[in-house]
């Protein structure tokens, strides 16, 4: 088992490395000149070269990539000038390992930017996850056991509605009616737990998290319904019924155990993707999470920030994959005992 985990992690690391390389290559292949962005509109040729040099974009791509990887492993200084560091250490910013880069635009390390934004995204993602899992699985099972009934059709119909409306529409709709017009909810503004306690944190998260959860919930209702229906036609369900087990025991012990296993994979990957920021939701609600950070960085062509966030998102997904695979070993004895 341990060997398996170690092997998976090694493969994950290799994947991450490849991901950074691809990200670098992609950005430098684009026709936009990042130096021009940094330098501003009225910028002479000379100033642009200067800016390019200051930002480190004059070096070949592989060297920049090498520096980046080195920074992740041991940390790095910005600017990386030992003389300057000796002469005036206060102008040099040291970025601890794992260093994701330095955003000249914000004059902060990417690590600091991420550190500020991540709790917002994580809060959103966690609350949304709880909402969509509870709602999705519950309504999915309900629809499955009442298959063909009014209830089933109603639930399935509602999921279609949730699918059909784009997230930004739902977000704006909630804002306009719940917060502005009827004022049944406060206008959401991210409040951390340290600032306002759990209640305020939660209250402010309700609306954006629900917006985010809605479309996932719709998907999970349908998946749960399909998986439960499928597992209830398995031969071992017939065996369980033939033993004389009570209907609810057949469903909850024998049926759900198998039906919900594939959901583990979905949850892991969906959650990992959300951790890296929900771009639309964060934008509409002006939540300063990773999603919003990405949007702003893209608009300004803030390359280090973009790369940092992409790597972070990638590592979330890879990590989630490993966790999902390992958890399978605990769920399914056929995996564990081969």
């Amino acid at each position: 088992m341990w060997a398996y985990i170690v092997r998976r992690c090694a493969v994950g690391l290799a994947l991450l490395l490849a991901l950074t390389l691809v990200t670098f290559a992609l950005f430098f292949a684009s026709p936009v000149d990042p130096a021009r962005f940094a330098c501003g509109k009225n910028c002479s040729e000379q100033q642009r070269d200067q800016a390019r040099k200051a930002l480190g974009y004059d070096k070949p791509v592989y060297e920049q990539w090498g520096n980046f990887v080195k920074g992740v492993v041991v940390g790095r200084d910005f600017p990386a000038d030992p003389e300057l560091r000796a002469a005036a250490p206060e102008v040099v910013t040291h970025c601890e390992a794992p260093c994701l880069g330095y955003s000249h635009l914000n004059a902060r390390t990417v690590n600091e930017l991420v550190k500020d934004a991540a709790p917002v995204s994580i809060s959103l993602a966690v609350v949304a996850l709880v909402m969509w899992l509870i709602g999705g699985v519950l309504f999915g099972i309900l629809a499955a056991v009442t298959k063909g009934s009014f209830m089933d059709r109603g639930i399935v119909g509602l999921t279609l509605v949730a699918y059909a409306f784009p997230t930004f529409f739902i977000a704006v709709f909630f804002l306009k009616y719940l917060a502005v017009k009827w004022q049944v909810m406060p206008y959401p503004a991210y409040t951390s737990i340290e600032e306002g306690g759990i209640a305020a944190w939660m209250l402010n998260l309700l609306m954006p998290s629900f917006t985010l959860a809605l479309v996932f919930m719709a998907g999970y209702v349908r998946m749960t319904r399909a998986f439960v229906l499928e597992s209830m036609t398995e031969d071992y369900i017939r065996t369980a019924r033939a033993k004389g087990l009570q209907g609810r025991k057949v469903l909850f012990k024998h049926g759900l155990r198998a039906a919900l296993t594939p959901l583990v994979t979905m949850v892991g990957l969906d959650f990992a993707a959300l951790l890296a920021g929900a771009i639309i939701t964060e934008s509409v609600f002006a939540y300063p999470g990773l999603g919003l950070l990405t949007v702003q960085a893209s608009a300004a062509y803030d390359l280090p920030t973009i790369i940092g966030v992409v790597i972070l998102a990638g590592s979330f997904v890879i990590l989630a994959n490993i966790i999902v695979d390992i958890s399978y070993a605990f769920i399914d004895p056929r995996v564990r005992l081969g």
Binding site: E234, D235, Y236, R238, T239, A240, H254, A258, D332, P333
Partner: peptide, 11 residues
């Protein structure tokens, strides 16, 4: 039942 593998719960 006919197929004892699928008739027993794998978990």
């Amino acid at each position: 039942f006919q197929d004892p593998l699928s008739s027993l719960h794998p978990y």
